[in-house]
Amino acid sequence: MLTAGTVALTLFLLGGFLLLQENLHGLVQGWGSAIQIFAYVDGGLSAADVSSLSTRIGAYPEVESARFVSQTEALASFKKSVGAQSGILEGVPAEALPASFDIALKPPSRDPASIAAVAQRLRAEKGVTQVDYAAEWAEKLDLLALSLAAAKWILGGFIAVAALFIVSNSVKLAIIARRDEIEVMELAGAPPALIRVPFLIEGMSQGLAGAALSLALLAAVFSLAVSALPRATGIAYAQPPHFLTIESCAVLLIVGTAIGAAASLFALGRQLGR
């Protein structure tokens, strides 16, 4: 039970990385929706020019929406954001703030490279004077995705070795505890498989039980985190996070069982020879 529990903890970490990775796309899309591109336009553009520019921007394959914010709307929005102190803006002419297009990208294009590419194209549009977006945020998201992918393999490797060592020691103790029985069976000519298979099954069962326990732990932590995360960060999900897919659950169970089997074979090789 102790061994299965330890395996569960180690596989819990591995499963956690899998879960994060599976949901990272959704998380990035959620955070990415907060990243808008602002394309400021020349105040002297005619309505026809604005309409034409709006049509061109809306035709970009990456663009989900492009809302034109006139100078008047910009000032009104600014006053609203200032709130009670909006009185200080009395007398400020509407032309003080530039008109702009607030552009949101489609979910598949909310990665840093796509955002930068769209910004580059916007800068080349006639009538666009300046393009702004939260470049730092986009880069951080990119870095987070890379870090998670690397951590999964590096930590996953360490964790797998640790689990292998733990199960191997557990099987070794079981072999030592049954040393007399094994010796009698060997004396009687028991086939090697008859002696080894029970230990192999024991190791595999511990690995499988550990993996199942880790899934249960993951499910519990996941359900808590899903409700707590939006409250803690203030960012709504673009798409609700989902638990591990059936395939990932199966992978985790198979990895646990395989670790148990490998650990048993290792312990059997060390204790009983080949």
């Binding site: 007399d180 004396l187 009687a188 028991a190 086939p191």
Partner: peptide, 22 residues
């Protein structure tokens, strides 16, 4: 090791230490 087990199945061994499982 498999053939050795088969060899032992054709034998009967009596030891001084009995080697019985308690």
């Amino acid at each position: 090791s498999r053939a050795l087990a088969a060899h032992r199945r054709a034998l009967g061994l009596v030891c001084q230490e009995f080697k019985l499982l308690p």
